[in-house]
Simulated assay, not measured.
Amino acid sequence: MNVPAPATAPAGFAPAATEEHATAQPGNPDDRATKRQRVLEILDAKGHDSMLLTSHTALTWYLDGSRMHISLAGDPIAALLVDRSGEHLITFNNEAERLAAEELPPGVELHMVPWHGQLTDAVGALAGPGEPLAEAAVAAELRAARQPMLPGESARYARLCADAARAMTDVLSRATPETTEFEVASALAARIVAAGAEPLVLLCSGSSRSAFRHPLATHAPLGRRAMAVVCARRHGLVANVTRWVRFDVGTPEELDAEERIAAVEADIFAATVPGATLGGIFAEIQAAYARHGFGADQWTLHHQGGPAGYAGRDPRATAATGDVVVPNQTFTWNPSGPGVKIEDTVQLTVAGTTVLTLDPRWPASDVNGLPRPLTLQL
């Protein structure tokens, strides 16, 4: 099956132009007010007057999409002190001008330390009496505060997820057996960056490397079958998607495994309902592998996903994770088996589960009412 490229897309692997996302910008005042109230409720419950946010996940969530990084591999370039009087962003003097001009939401006070200093140097004077509550001390409470997505961030997330899915279609529909894994990864990166996002994870494996579940790209050609994975971040939110392409009809074993892994995922979606715990869903994941012929130990060979949003997984689900599923929460489950994997970012609403990483051009089948991706056959 050939997937037509958009009429505006250039040939080959050049990045396609993207539209301006004017209707889904960060810094929604109503969303920010709700987030502040959630943090104040944590302070009330803990008997503290201030909290210091220091991670990318917490900062981008609370500031509603502001970019707090320079290096994708580095620590945040700011810390945020939230107290009962307001919000105080501490950053280095060489970052302050740009943050104030381009990233800082209204009402947040900006404070500087020298570029060679420490962000925590300014905390004591700002916090007043009493030690600020450390982010690590309320990790579970902050996760719970992030889980129900608000209207503004839900709109931004849906746009990002659709862009990531379109990038996959644009790139993989142009691939050939001779295309290398690095060529796929670089073409995906170009499209993600052109969409105003950051490619946090880019994986690709051709037929010679299909045994690897986290395949960093190499110069190997795709061969007869390939997998690509993208985790793209924009305004702090991370979209996760996996797609497969093949250049023949597939073997009976591959077709059977693809159908069975989709059945495993369907069981996971059925278990992901408001009020369920992540640990309970994880137990269903373990049972689903055995139920669909993958073996009871398959879950031990790769993480299974979990809630998504301001982190790739927030958190990864395990048998010991007690977080409770709530409406408007987003998830990326990624069951996998030998030579197969399925992964999309979805949102759970009162109306049910909605697939966010969806491109109508990509071939799909209906599984329990949801469009689930098939392998693109070229």
Rank of each mutant, 00 (worst) to 15 (best):
F92M: 10
D31S: 00
A33Q: 12
A24E: 11
D75F: 12
A296K: 15
A239S: 15
E19W: 08
R32G: 09
H235I: 01
G339V: 03
R313Q: 08
L370I: 08
V3N: 08
P315T: 02
G124Y: 03
G223V: 00
H219T: 13
A11M: 07
A78I: 14
P335D: 13
A311L: 00
E141V: 06
E198T: 12
E141H: 07
R243D: 08
D44S: 10
M168C: 12
R191H: 14
V350D: 15
G117W: 05
A145G: 10
T272D: 11
G107K: 04
M1G: 13
V346M: 09
G275K: 00
E178W: 04
A5L: 15
L59C: 06
A189S: 14
R38L: 15
M149D: 00
L255P: 04
P221N: 07
A232S: 12
W115H: 06
G47P: 08
L119D: 07
A257E: 02
A125T: 10
S154R: 15
T57P: 02
W61F: 06
L126C: 05
H214I: 13
T272I: 07
E141W: 08
G74L: 10
T318K: 03
V138L: 13
A296Y: 03
P129M: 07
L59S: 02
P148R: 02
R316M: 11
A127P: 05
L43K: 05
G128Q: 08
L374M: 13
A296D: 15
K46R: 15
V138F: 01
L81K: 07
A194V: 05
T8P: 03
D323A: 10
L255Y: 04
M112A: 07
L150I: 13
P114M: 06
L200V: 11
L81E: 06
Q118S: 11
A155L: 15
L237C: 06
D163P: 03
S205F: 00
S50D: 08
E265I: 00
V340E: 13
R233Y: 03
